Computed example of a mutant assay.
Amino acid sequence: MRKDLTKIALVCTFFLATQLTTYAQNKKYGSLSFNKAVNISGKQRMLTQRMGKIYLYLLDNPNDFKAQKNLKITKIIFEKQISILDKNASLLITKNKLAEVKDTWEKYKKFIESTPNKKDAEKIINTNSTILKYANNVVNAIILESKGGSSDDSYVAEEDSELKQIINKAGRQRMLSQRLALYYFANKPDLKNKKTESVLRNVYSELDNALNDLLVSSFNNDRIDEALGDVTVLWESVKENNDKLFKQGYQDQEIYKLSNTLTKLFNKITNLYEKVKVE
């Protein structure tokens, strides 16, 4: 019995070593670079929040046909990107994390696809954090998978790992930009509950703190600094009037547009980090 267990352990060790050797040779996530995979998986987090935000917005703005179209497009992109990430995944842990997202998505999608109503809006408020958590787990799994393809040079390997973390952090800002508006709408008198205001304040704080981290990143170049300058100017205007955020001082269209502008700026920054080369 003990010999059999030893053989199994040796086989598992050999299999894992073979996988990691393959990653070390390819240094890719299937047909994608790992930087691209971290970026795409990070964007999935944003899309979960964007769908929830649009749904809550449509509660009081049911005739905004552009928002209706954006909700449908976002749903399609989310599903297509799940398929791409799943197709290119190699490690079982990554595939399992993607399976969790797909399973949760089937439930979340039913709320998103309904004609906007208060009952399903409340369900979205109560469940959006779950699918967000699972989507975030996929990002972490891909970053873990990428470490199997690190360079033999320990310095380069560490730099490469830090770059993926900064891509992750910048990408997370896209999600927080959408989540900020989602919880602004969730904080309306007819929807708010014990948690909605605290979530809104936590999102605001994380956005602010993470922006400071990006501003001092060693990976910044002239183009990234310029893009960070653009988003900082906009964010400072939000901070200077944060009472509007916490006391429902924005018009629906205003906060909707603000979240999209922030997302667009952070998306540009994330894409620029993705293209940084570690040598």
Rank of each mutant, 00 (worst) to 15 (best):
G171Q: 12
Q251D: 06
K43Q: 15
S114T: 06
D252A: 04
V156S: 05
Y273P: 00
T94K: 05
E122M: 11
A37Y: 08
N212I: 02
T48V: 01
W235K: 02
R45L: 05
D225G: 09
D208C: 03
E113N: 11
E274R: 13
Y273S: 04
Y108P: 07
S154T: 09
S154G: 07
S41A: 10
S198C: 02
F111V: 04
K107A: 13
M1V: 07
I224E: 14
G229K: 10
I166K: 13
S198G: 00
N271R: 03
K239V: 11
K95N: 07
K43P: 03
Y155L: 12
S259L: 06
N39F: 11
Y23M: 15
L200K: 12
I77Q: 04
E279I: 09
P62S: 09
K264H: 15
N96L: 14
R223M: 08
V199A: 00
E197K: 14
Y29R: 10
M46F: 11
Y183E: 03
K3E: 14
R174W: 11
K118H: 04
L91W: 12
A181E: 00
L207D: 06
Y55R: 03
T22H: 06
A121D: 01
K147N: 11
L245H: 10
A186W: 12
Y256E: 02
F65V: 03
S198W: 15
Q49M: 02
P62E: 00
I40Q: 13
K195Y: 14
K275S: 11
R174Y: 05
A99V: 08
E279N: 13
N128G: 03
Y256H: 04
G171N: 14
Y250Q: 07
K27G: 08
A67C: 02
A99Y: 04
N202D: 15
L258K: 05
S205Q: 15
Y23C: 02
F34V: 10
V199K: 11
K257L: 11
K247A: 09
C12P: 04
I131Y: 08
R45S: 06
N267G: 15
S41V: 08
A17T: 10
A157P: 05
E79T: 10
N221T: 07
D160Q: 15
A227Y: 08
L47G: 07
V38Y: 05
E240A: 13
M46D: 02
K123Y: 11
Q25A: 13
T104P: 00
E206V: 00
A135D: 07
D208E: 08
L180C: 01
K268R: 15
S31E: 15
Q49H: 05
A227W: 10
N63I: 04
S150W: 07
A99H: 07
R2N: 08
V238F: 13
K66N: 15
K7G: 00
E113R: 10
I40A: 09
L91G: 01
V199Q: 09
E158Y: 06
K169V: 02
K97P: 07
Q49A: 01
A186E: 03
F65Q: 12
I124E: 03
R223C: 00
L265N: 09
L211Y: 10
K7S: 11
E236D: 14
L245W: 12
D4W: 13
I269H: 05
T21S: 12
K43S: 13
Y55H: 06
I224R: 11
V156G: 12
D160N: 13
D190H: 14
I40R: 09
L92G: 01
F266K: 03
E122N: 09
Y57A: 05
Q165P: 00
N39M: 12
N140R: 02
